[in-house]
């Protein structure tokens, strides 16, 4: 039986690691992208980015002062027994991590703008629970700062416009945002579904490793095509020009109404922070980063 205290401690550990380290795939893609840059300013940005990551890791200090808001995706096996409130415990872990890591208190009431209890409140952290078969348990965490979250967009496009319209929507989002979401960004795209599921697909897409090909060949091709177009904009690191505007475009799809083409775009800043925990030999463990 999964113990509440163990589960909470693992979530705290996920937050600590996500804020101070990046997953290996992100590091690999950052290194590879940095080598392509020719402009001295773009090179300088990559140098500072990599140096900052080293320092963050060395001192267990959060990479960015905007320790963000949190989205948890939980895959919970129907065969597992549970005697505590999963969502509430994740909230407790966020409050605990806010003190211990520590995280910046960034969460406020949307109307009064008064601080909410340590980074928690109605809807925060966001927890999406999916029931799966067997005794599987996996927790994925996505950390997002406001710099990128503010540039997320939802488009309800004309179905006849097809894949070209998806590319245009991404390019419009990137050029409007320019240097503000801390490029090079990872672009999560949710295609199809509805006006509430497309954004969730876009966020889920951001959980995928950056250097693995999309198993869906149509989407793999579209991802490459949009990546090339995005990097041709010249926006570059921090919007000051360069070869790398996006580290990766990741697309997820769902079926939709014949008369709709929802396209949601979730940008993630270059410190693409995420963490993963899984059951390993019956114990929940942080496996990434």
């Amino acid at each position: 039986m999964l113990k509440k205290a163990d589960f909470r401690d693992v979530v705290v550990e996920m937050l600590r690691r996500a804020e101070t380290n990046l997953p290996d795939d992100v590091l690999r893609v950052l290194r590879r992208s940095g080598k392509r840059e020719r402009s001295p300013i773009a090179k300088l940005h990559f140098e500072l980015m990599m140096k900052n990551l080293e320092l963050a890791k060395k001192f267990w200090a959060p990479i960015c002062q905007d320790t963000g808001t949190f989205t948890f995706f939980v895959q919970f096996g129907r065969g597992l027994k549970l005697n505590f409130d999963l969502e509430k415990t994740i909230g407790e872990a966020v409050a605990l991590a806010t003190r211990e890591v520590p995280l910046r208190p960034s969460v406020v009431d949307p109307i009064t703008r008064k601080p909410a209890k340590p980074n928690t409140g109605r809807g925060q952290p966001a927890v999406h629970i999916e029931l799966v078969g067997g005794k599987r348990l996996q927790v994925d965490l996505l950390v997002k700062g406001a710099g990128t979250e503010n540039w997320g967009r939802l488009f309800m496009l004309r179905p006849v416009e097809g894949p070209r319209a998806i590319e245009r929507a991404v390019l419009l989002t990137l050029t409007e945002a320019w240097g503000r979401p801390c490029p090079p960004t990872v672009v999560g795209v949710g295609v199809g579904g509805s006006m509430e599921t497309a954004p969730l697909l876009a966020k889920r897409a951001l959980l995928r490793p950056l250097d693995r090909q999309n198993p869906d060949p149509t989407l793999a091709k579209l991802e490459r095509q949009i990546e090339r177009a995005a990097n041709r904009t010249g926006i570059g690191p921090m919007g000051l020009g360069g070869e790398t505007t996006v580290l990766r475009v990741l697309i997820e799809r769902a079926v939709c109404h014949a008369a709709s083409l929802p396209v949601a775009i979730a940008l993630q800043c270059w410190p693409a922070r995420r963490a993963k925990a899984k059951l390993v030999g019956g114990r929940l463990k942080v496996v990434e980063p």
Binding site: L44, H45, L48, M49, K51, N52, L55, A56, F59, A61, P62, I63, C64, Q65, G147, G179, C182, P237, M238, L240, C269, W270, P271
Partner: peptide
């Protein structure tokens, strides 16, 4: 003056 976004630890130090 533009500083590298996300370079929080370099700045702090």
């Amino acid at each position: 003056l533009a500083f590298t976004g996300g370079a929080g630890v370099i700045a702090a130090r």
